[in-house]
């Protein structure tokens, strides 16, 4: 069937209609929560939902960051920042050398290690959590930063080694061979050649580590109970016990915001990582 002119116009129209539908459906829940966070409690609780706002109020945002707020949102954001940054740095620092060795050196049991790191994700996290819970309590790490960072790092590490591995493989071999011929030792090779070339990968890894730790929910749910150790995700869940929907919506927006900003800024890089995965 050769496309005729009216047929082509029709198909173009269908494309735009389809695009509009997808756009609305995918964005609608996000739009909804932002809208909710900027309306007064009375209007939120009214049965006829106004889909287009006639005003905008920031009262819920000021309220959740005020000292009298039932859930310490500001404090929980600081906690999550500390834990997420630590996790990102530690995970990348451990994953990069491992990824380099696994992809460029002869490591005994290399296939077993890489296979094991992938297989871990198949098993339910709760399988590992029960003995960890006991250990964390026995070591007195319950309700501490270390008690959170340690499981975070471990949960992120296998995935990080895989991702960093794809960046390591992207470094042209000839560069390394040249350095070796020039008599560089392993430390020089890694610090002078490999790490500078890996910089984009390391940056991506840090972002990934940060995001994964920021959104983690099960670990803080089980390994903390003190309000002073509250993370954003747990705080958000605690807020659901609250009665004020507007504040809950505002807290949701604040929890999602850092991750959304990172994703929006780096969507091209994210797409590249996934695309690289498909091509392999």
């Amino acid at each position: 069937m050769i496309a005729t002119a009216p047929g082509r116009a029709l198909r173009r129209a269908a494309t735009y209609v389809g695009a509009a539908v997808v756009l609305i459906v995918m964005a609608f829940p996000l739009y909804g929560i932002i809208l909710t966070s900027t309306q007064t409690e009375r209007d939120i609780r009214s049965a006829d939902v106004a889909f287009v706002p006639t005003y905008i109020t920031t009262e819920h945002y000021t309220r959740i960051f005020s000292a009298s707020s039932g859930v310490p949102v500001a404090e929980s954001m600081v906690n999550s920042l500390v834990v997420a940054i630590t996790t990102a740095v530690v995970t990348v620092a451990i994953a990069v050398p491992a990824a380099y060795a696994l992809n460029r050196m002869r490591v005994p049991g290399r296939r077993l290690i890489l296979g094991g790191f992938a297989a871990i994700y198949v098993l339910p996290t709760l399988l590992f959590v029960m003995p960890l819970f006991i250990t964390v309590v026995q070591l007195g790490l319950y309700d501490t930063y270390v008690g959170l960072v340690l499981p975070y790092v471990a949960f992120t590490l296998p995935f990080m080694v895989w991702i960093m591995g794809s960046f390591v493989r992207a470094i042209p071999i000839s560069v390394e061979e040249m350095a070796l011929i020039d008599g560089a030792g392993l430390p020089q090779l890694i610090f002078r050649i490999v790490l500078p070339l890996l910089r984009p990968g390391i940056f991506a890894g840090l972002l990934l580590g940060f995001v994964l730790a920021w959104v983690e929910f099960l670990t803080p749910l089980l390994f903390t109970s003190n309000l002073s150790m509250l993370t954003v995700t747990l705080g958000l869940f605690r807020s659901t016990m609250d009665i004020e929907i507007g504040q809950l919506a505002a807290a949701t927006v604040m929890t999602a915001l850092p991750v959304i900003l990172i994703t929006a800024f780096f969507q091209r890089n994210i797409t590249e990582v996934i695309t690289a995965g498909v091509e392999r």
Binding site: M26, L30, V215, T255, A256, V259
Partner: peptide
């Protein structure tokens, strides 16, 4: 289309 991925599961 990418955005929902950026929303933390709890959020």
């Amino acid at each position: 289309v990418l955005l929902p991925w950026a929303v933390p599961p709890v959020a």
